[in-house]
């Protein structure tokens, strides 16, 4: 099971800044191990976010996003107490969802 994400969502007026730190290797598929064998690609392909269950963000990523990816986006119309859920899915089909409360 992948490690949990760290999510912070801070409201300022109508806009809520969401910062997410995910835990993922993000292998490009271009690196080689010491034996010279290519390390297969393993990276997050899709990131989605929901505000109180309503989809607000969809993003597609390539393998060039850094290891343990950071993502910041701004949601409109969220207020303190609302729930922000973030889900990622990698190219192996593994997925993880974590939730945070807007403060």
């Amino acid at each position: 099971m992948p490690d949990p994400m760290r999510i912070r969502a801070q409201a300022a007026g109508d806009k809520t800044t969401v910062r997410v730190l995910m835990s993922h290797e993000m292998e490009t598929g271009l690196r080689k191990d010491p034996a010279g064998k290519t390390i297969p690609a393993w990276f997050i392909q899709e990131v989605t976010a929901q505000l109180n269950g309503k989809p607000v963000l969809t993003a597609e990523w390539g393998p060039s996003v850094s290891k343990n990816p950071f993502l910041q986006f701004i949601v409109k119309g969220a207020k303190a107490g609302d729930k922000i859920a973030v889900t990622w899915r990698d190219n192996r089909g593994e997925t993880r969802t974590d939730e945070a409360t807007v403060s």
Binding site: T28, W61, S64, V65, S66, F70, L71, Q72
Partner: peptide, 19 residues
């Protein structure tokens, strides 16, 4: 590196980290 869909619920402003 990354593609973000913009809709009426998010600001067209995204930050991440890349290699």
């Amino acid at each position: 590196s990354a593609a973000f869909d913009v809709n009426e619920f998010v600001e067209p402003s995204f930050t991440t980290r890349v290699k």
